[in-house]
Amino acid sequence: MNPEEPALAAQDGLEAFAALAAHQLGEAIALMRGAASVLDSQGGSLGPGGQDALRALSAGGDRAQRYVDDLLDVVRASAEPIEHAATDLDPALDVALADLETYLHRAPVHVQREPLPRAAIEAGDARRVFGHLVRTALAAGATRLGITGRVEGDEVVVELFDNGTPAREGTQPFEPFGRPRGRGPLVGAGVSLPVCRRLVERLGGRIGMEVRSDGATIITVELPASR
């Protein structure tokens, strides 16, 4: 027996469980949101306490949905076929920022960006990578976020800078369900960086994190340049 086969089988079993759990949780969240919609239709008859309970129910449903989305991304990052497409990274970043606009304004987070090149990554994967990286900054309580990109030979190098809470010494930020960097306005299941690593490495790229002397965190993503 190949010594790697038990580990691969365990990984496949874990991802199958994650897919099943995400499906079951999704159904429970749908029921929760249906109940919230019924209560919301009653308007002022709920009273102040009822309105507070309704807001808590809605916030809990939103947070549970983020956990489900994280679980599904763990499965997708391993199971979907690799597509070496040529993608403009700017539109992918646009979509990721638009999806998180509510949280970016809530902090608020000042976003500074430069034009990004094309890279050999499927557009959907590029949106996922950017979405998870921005979520990581939000979870760390960042108020400033910078995104730059350049071409170096056969590689595209994208760097994201944020001033959020740095990762604690001794933690493994790219391991699944690791300890989050902070407690910002958007906290998920702790799989954002592991999902990014899977997506990037499946394309032959690399991802890393560095904390500068001033406390800023830099996440560097290296992808194959589009041919």
Rank of each mutant, 00 (worst) to 15 (best):
Glu4Cys: 04
Pro6Cys: 04
Leu8Pro: 01
Asp12Leu: 12
Gly13Trp: 06
Ala16Val: 03
Phe17Ile: 15
Ala19Arg: 09
Leu20Ile: 01
Leu20Gly: 07
Ala21Cys: 08
Ala21Leu: 10
Ala22Ile: 04
His23Leu: 07
Leu25Gln: 05
Leu25Pro: 00
Ala28Ile: 05
Ala30Ser: 06
Ala30Val: 11
Ala30Thr: 11
Ala30Gly: 02
Leu31His: 09
Arg33Met: 12
Val38Pro: 06
Val38Glu: 13
Asp40Thr: 02
Gln42Val: 11
Ser45Asn: 02
Ser45Arg: 07
Leu46Asp: 07
Leu46Ser: 07
Pro48Ala: 08
Gly49Ile: 13
Gly49Ala: 15
Gln51Val: 07
Asp52His: 11
Asp52Ile: 15
Leu54Ile: 09
Arg55Phe: 05
Leu57Cys: 04
Leu57Met: 14
Ala59Arg: 14
Gly60Met: 06
Asp62Phe: 01
Ala64Arg: 08
Ala64Phe: 04
Ala64Ile: 03
Gln65Thr: 06
Val68Ala: 11
Val68Arg: 12
Leu72Val: 09
Leu72Lys: 10
Asp73His: 08
Val74Leu: 12
Val75Phe: 07
Glu80Tyr: 08
Glu83Leu: 14
Glu83Asn: 11
Ala85His: 13
Ala86Glu: 12
Ala86Trp: 11
Thr87Trp: 01
Leu89Ser: 10
Asp90Ser: 08
Ala92Gln: 03
Leu93Lys: 00
Leu93Thr: 05
Leu97His: 06
Ala98Val: 03
Asp99Pro: 00
Leu100Phe: 02
Glu101Asp: 15
Thr102Glu: 12
Tyr103Cys: 04
Leu104Lys: 00
Arg106Tyr: 01
Pro108Tyr: 05
His110Ser: 06
Glu114Phe: 07
Pro115Trp: 07
Pro115Asn: 07
Ala119His: 12
Ala120Arg: 15
Ile121Asn: 14
Arg128Val: 15
Gly131Ser: 14
Gly131Cys: 04
Gly131Ile: 00
His132Ile: 00
His132Lys: 09
Leu133Glu: 12
Thr136His: 07
Gly141Tyr: 09
Ala142Arg: 08
Thr143Ile: 03
Arg144Gln: 15
Gly146Ile: 09
Thr148Gln: 09
Gly149Ile: 12
Glu155His: 06
Glu155Ile: 00
Val156Leu: 01
Val156Trp: 00
Val157Ser: 00
Leu160Gln: 11
Thr165Gly: 05
Arg168Phe: 10
Arg179Phe: 03
Pro180His: 02
Pro180Gly: 01
Pro180Leu: 00
Gly182Ile: 05
Leu186Trp: 01
Gly190Tyr: 04
Cys196Ile: 15
Arg197Lys: 13
Leu199Gln: 07
Glu201Trp: 04
Leu203Tyr: 13
Gly204Met: 04
Arg206Tyr: 13
Ile207Gly: 02
Ile207Val: 14
Gly208Ser: 15
Glu210Ala: 14
Val211Gly: 10
Ser213Arg: 13
Ala216Trp: 03
Ile218Met: 01
Ile219Ala: 01
Glu222Thr: 08
Glu222His: 07
Leu223Pro: 01
Pro224Ala: 12
Pro224Cys: 10
Ala225His: 05
Arg227Glu: 14
Arg227Tyr: 09
